[in-house]
Design a protein around this nucleic acid. Structure first.
Lengths: 96, 96
DNA sequence: TTGACATGCAATGATTTCATTGCATATTGA
DNA sequence: TCAATATGCAATGAAATCATTGCATGTCAA
């Protein structure tokens, strides 16, 4: 894992909506975009647009934290905790 | 530590220049702005302006990761790993 | 085969980030 | 005192982030 990948992981964690998405996907894998949308809310409790959630999921995917699989017309998202472990092992661990 | 503080910590870690500053301050505390400037470089190896480093240090300070103390005309910066430990304990630990 | 469903793609816009330059202020030492 | 030193403050600007809306595409099921 290089500096850029480390950037993407930590930046992905630097937003409360994305952390909540991670939390949800950890509880249950293979969730569709609509399922994630249904329980994603902005800071004030207002629901987020579908496209906003899509953009967050794209960032999580680029950081390697979310894996995608298609089932018909449904896109299923699953958490991959690997990059979290890597980022912890490679950098954060030295600073605790 | 609330969601906003968690944001600030992870966002602070999401930039390679800031991670290098943290690395340097961990090796030796109480470094002045100029000392940190002298060994801070952008991705391509070009030196950063003093003001750029100041802005990074401000972010680190707002995240609680850097403490400041004055000695005459010199501002001394020291790493505080507390928020890293908190962020790890409160959120990241559950995902490893 | 049509209509409802799940998602993709594109454009827009406000805000934040990252870095710069120029000038101002305060402290130290000769 | 005066010059060099160490930093602060303000303005600027390119790029990324976060969220929106509108329209298009592909898939399933009645």
């Amino acid at each position: 894992m290089n500096d850029d990948e480390l950037d993407r992981v930590f930046k992905a964690l630097g937003d409360p909506t994305r952390r909540r998405i991670i939390d949800r996907l950890r509880e249950r894998p293979k969730q569709s975009l609509f399922e994630i949308c249904a329980l994603s809310f902005a800071d004030d409790g207002a629901p987020l647009s579908r496209q906003a959630v899509t953009q967050h999921l794209d960032m999580l995917q680029k950081a390697g934290l979310v894996r995608v699989e298609w089932s018909g017309r449904t896109k299923l998202h699953t958490l991959d905790p690997g990059p979290l472990r890597e980022a912890f092992g490679l950098w954060l661990r030295n600073h605790l």
